[in-house]
């Protein structure tokens, strides 16, 4: 077997059959329907921010609190949204992904032993 295979004994399983099973399809659907839209969301928000900083400098220079202007506030909001998405994903993965993926893993590896 090739050196890429983390466990050489695994070459005998019918992967294509496992892949079409409902549990696995559900796992993949859950993962993708979370990570794709959320990636679109945070990249969009980031690009919007960079575009504002580039082409709307007067808007970003509006002072809000003392010398702290909109640009700085929105920049710090990027930090907040990053932390929030991180926490959101961890919660989602713990509840919706991990139980299903360990169930599938046990089924596959149980059959093999």
């Amino acid at each position: 077997m090739s050196t890429t295979d983390p466990s050489p004994a695994a070459g005998t399983r019918d992967w294509q059959a496992i892949e079409v099973e409902p549990d696995f399809q559900e796992l993949r659907r859950r993962l993708r329907s979370f990570v794709f839209p959320v990636t679109g969301l945070f990249l969009g928000w980031y690009v919007l921010y960079v575009l504002l900083a580039t082409y709307a400098a007067p808007f970003m220079s509006i002072k809000v609190l003392g010398n702290i202007n909109l640009g700085l506030l929105l920049g710090l909001l990027q930090f907040v949204s990053t932390f929030a998405i991180t926490a959101w994903y961890v919660k989602f993965a713990d509840r919706r992904l991990d139980p299903l993926s360990s169930k599938i893993r046990q089924e596959i590896q149980g059959v093999d032993k």
């Binding site: 295979d5 695994a10 399983r13 992967w15 294509q16 496992i18 696995f24 796992l27 993926s101 360990s102």
Partner: peptide, 20 residues
Amino acid sequence: ADKVAEMSVRSLTGVGVEKS
């Protein structure tokens, strides 16, 4: 096709890695 399916299953479930 078999390798593609294997990679897809393994990437999401960690089969092989967790045992190793």
